[in-house]
């Protein structure tokens, strides 16, 4: 199978995966305990909106990073393909988080300009594929830790979806670490 025939199939898969994740996240967010029906308190809801918006900002940055990397010319086509798949996961996270913020009555934070992300992530310093992969690994590993670390601050209804997102980020980090030749960690509790 050639790259040309593989790419559309993978893109279709990415789109499907994003929808599936969004639906799963939304089912979790809107099912069972509804914020509209039983909010803990106005301040707790406001706190959740702030934290979820920070998570949206994190996903915006991740999506932008993969977009910039994919069009940088530094990556092999197969690596671009993987990056686009990961980007699709982040889009699914973003969509689920936006829906959650809206359900809580908040306003989702918007993405910033690409120039902002290029500067914030010091994209100009990336010279080759390995540099790009190391940045991606740093962001994914950090995102896994970030989601795990914010769970205690979030309302109970968001704990599971935050853990799911941490799991996705950890999966990405594992793939990237393997691509970079990193050894498998010897001890458990690698994140958080």
């Amino acid at each position: 199978m050639t790259t040309e025939t593989t790419m559309p199939t993978r893109r279709n898969f990415i789109g499907g995966a994003g929808k599936t994740l969004s639906l799963a996240g939304l089912a979790m967010i809107s099912g069972g305990c509804s914020y509209a029906a039983a909010p803990n308190s106005a301040s707790a809801t406001s706190q959740d909106v702030e934290i979820l918006n920070a998570a949206i900002a994190l996903e915006h940055e991740g999506i932008a990073a993969y977009q910039i990397a994919a069009t940088s010319g530094l990556l092999q086509p197969a690596v671009v393909d993987i990056g686009v798949t990961f980007q699709g996961h982040h889009k699914g996270h973003r969509d689920a988080l936006i829906k959650a913020v809206e359900q809580l009555g908040g306003t989702p934070v918007e993405e910033q300009s690409q120039d902002h992300y290029i500067d914030a992530l010091d994209i100009a310093s990336l010279k080759n594929q390995e540099d790009v992969l190391r940045l991606a690994l740093k962001l994914e590993r950090g995102a896994a830790n970030a989601y795990l670390g914010l769970i205690p601050s979030l309302g109970n209804d968001f704990h599971q979806v935050a853990a799911q997102m941490a799991g996705d980020e950890a999966f990405h980090a594992a793939i990237l670490g393997n691509a970079l030749g990193e050894p498998i960690p010897k001890t458990p509790l690698m994140f958080g």
């Binding site: 920070a54 900002a57 994190l58 940055e61 500067d119 914030a120 992530l121 010091d122 740093k138 962001l139 590993r141 950090g142 995102a143 830790n145 970030a146 670390g149």
Partner: peptide, 15 residues
């Protein structure tokens, strides 16, 4: 780097 690096850096405003 491990715990703060997802959102912060020393010299750039990020998340």
């Amino acid at each position: 780097q491990m715990k703060c690096g997802a959102c912060h850096s020393l010299d750039k405003n990020r998340i």
